[in-house]
Amino acid sequence: MAAETIRLDVARYRPEEDAEPVLQSYEVPLRPDWAVLDGLAHIKDHLDGTLSFRWSCRMGICGSCGMDVDGEPRLTCGTFLAEYGAGPVRIEPLKGFPVIRDLVVDIDGFLAKLSSVRPWLVREGEEPPLTAEYAQTPAQLDAYKQYSMCINCMLCYSACPVYVLDPDFLGPAAIALAQRYNLDSRDMDDRFDVLNLEEAVWGCTFVGDCTRVCPKHVDPAEAIQRYKVTAALRSVLPWSGR
């Protein structure tokens, strides 16, 4: 009896020969313990060595294997083929990012947005790297811990309708990262200059899809709405700080 298989419709884009991405179909084994990433690895190893995609840890930690699976931004290492029944399963690069090749997208813009929110501890009169220790209580840690769980997988960007339409939008992960440091008792910055902008928190229309697709339950939508309140108070009462 032939082994059971499932069809994967994979977006292919080879800039030297393709004007735009096209779907190419492959039959891969359908095994109960195989994730979508295993299916892609099978294609790469046994069917078509030219297929390009990113992956690293295979444990939902590095965030590098994010792709659109049947139109939903997912970590392919934690998305199992068995979830899709008899298939087929459509696999495409994350929306909103320039495609370099096949399923690999250009993340330079995303990294620039992360850097712009100064994602480090800012201390008055001190320059990184900081060497002093600053103790925190469990409550002070809990204030920002949720936002520190982000793995920069960019699924929230692909799900965000604002970012897909406006690449200048700072985006969910960068704003959540800014809040992670704003809420850290050791930090002395407020990042008002990069967050209180139309391209930042005020550009968010609060659809909430960024939170829905986050594999680490960071809730970037909440981070954005919380800073809207902070920014509004800061604008009316400048002395209120962060």
Rank of each mutant, 00 (worst) to 15 (best):
L165S: 10
A176Q: 08
D184S: 04
Y163V: 00
R191T: 02
G171L: 04
C156N: 06
L170T: 04
D166P: 00
L155R: 10
D184N: 13
A132W: 07
D168V: 00
Q136H: 11
Q136N: 07
P138D: 04
A143Y: 04
A139H: 03
L195A: 07
F169D: 00
L170A: 07
F169G: 00
A132M: 12
I175K: 02
N182F: 02
C160I: 13
Q136E: 15
P161A: 10
A178E: 09
P167M: 12
C156Q: 03
P161L: 12
Q146R: 15
A174G: 05
S158P: 02
L183I: 04
N196L: 07
K145S: 10
L155T: 06
A139Y: 04
Y144S: 09
L141S: 05
A174L: 03
R191Y: 05
C150T: 08
D190I: 10
L183T: 00
Y163L: 00
L141R: 12
A173T: 12
G171W: 02
A159H: 10
I151N: 05
S148M: 14
A143F: 03
D187N: 05
A176H: 06
F192E: 13
M149F: 15
L165W: 03
D187S: 03
Y144L: 08
R191E: 06
A176G: 08
L177A: 01
S185M: 09
P161M: 09
C153H: 03
M154N: 06
L177T: 13
S158D: 06
C153D: 05
P138Q: 09
A176N: 05
V164E: 00
N152H: 12
T131F: 11
A139G: 14
P172R: 06
L130V: 01
S158Q: 07
T131D: 10
R191F: 10
M188I: 00
I151W: 05
Q140E: 15
D184L: 05
N196A: 15
I175H: 00
A176I: 10
D166E: 13
S148Y: 06
A176D: 09
I175M: 14
Q146L: 08
N182K: 12
P167V: 13
S158M: 12
C150L: 11
Q146F: 00
L155P: 06
A143E: 13
M149E: 10
V162W: 02
L177P: 00
